[in-house]
Nucleic acid binder design. Structure first.
Lengths: 149, 149
DNA sequence: CTACACCTTGAAGTCGGCTTCAAGTCAAGG
DNA sequence: CCTTGACTTGAAGCCGACTTCAAGGTGTAG
């Protein structure tokens, strides 16, 4: 046994090999040894990838995950690293949830409004008819996330 | 008075003129009359834009907003159009909120875990130590939304 | 005439996290 | 020797909603 090929790692983790190469280039996965120019991974990489995917699922960007993996002194335990990043992320998530909740309310306000045409409806303007759906968007959208292949 | 220039509309609505042109090309705002090749908008466009921005703020994509504005028979009232689109969007938002809430839980599980290194932590694998942070991500991320200039 | 402010267009750039493609390398099997 | 299959690379494409850029037109003021 001289290490896993990238295809083997892909099979074991359910990931595309292109993603593994991408993470390596992005400085997240350390470059493995090579045999004849081909990557040979230590079996431990599977666990690293599990942590990576977990962090991604928790909402961390690759930038943040790079920090999680390589951005602290080598002696800093994983738990402490996680904690250092978690508070900001929790606040981001709370903001996201709050925003999504406001969007829900906006949609319901739109349902309650019952306008006939664009020109007799709506907000944003002090001379507006009544209690139309309210003001501006402020935060345009929320993008969807890609599935896992 | 022969209509508002695009710059004037931008000023009144707080939008970049590039956005107005983009929406026109995207088939959302109808092309206005022109004088010497320049767009001259009817004052009513301001209200259209308010509705557009409101819908955007409620989470609708430009595709959906195009449907909202131009995708029904001309006799269909705005309220009915809104309703036709609202139910799916509410479900999407609920899914989003649920996902964000799961992400919150994941982060908190990570905080409770207290692992020292990547190799002694984590999930996804049946031989894992204990009740590590749990399984996979399934839905990678949530993208941030751009502010309103 | 020049300067200036405003408008026009199409093409390309931005962000994140990949995927896809073209072209090439390499080892094992028939 | 030739094919097959897995690997390598860099470059480009994708999604959404725009912004930015280059190059040029037009109207008005001084």
């Amino acid at each position: 046994m001289d290490g896993l090929t990238i295809g083997e790692v892909g099979r074991r983790t359910g990931l595309a090999t292109s993603a593994l190469r991408y993470w390596e280039r992005a400085g997240i996965l350390p470059p493995p040894l090579r045999q004849n120019g081909q990557r040979r991974y230590d079996a431990g990489v599977v666990r690293w990838i599990a942590v990576l995917r977990f962090a991604q699922g928790a909402g961390f960007t690759l930038d943040e995950i790079r920090t999680l993996f390589h951005g602290f002194g080598a002696e800093t335990p994983l738990g402490a690293r996680w904690e250092a990043l978690a508070h900001d992320k929790l606040r981001e998530l709370d903001a996201l949830i709050a925003r999504a909740t406001r969007m829900r309310h906006a949609i319901e306000a739109g349902l309650a409004c019952g306008c006939v045409s664009v020109d007799d409806c709506m907000a944003g303007d002090p001379s507006a008819p009544a209690d139309g759906p309210a003001q501006a968007p402020a935060q345009p959208a929320l993008r969807r996330a890609g599935g896992t292949r």
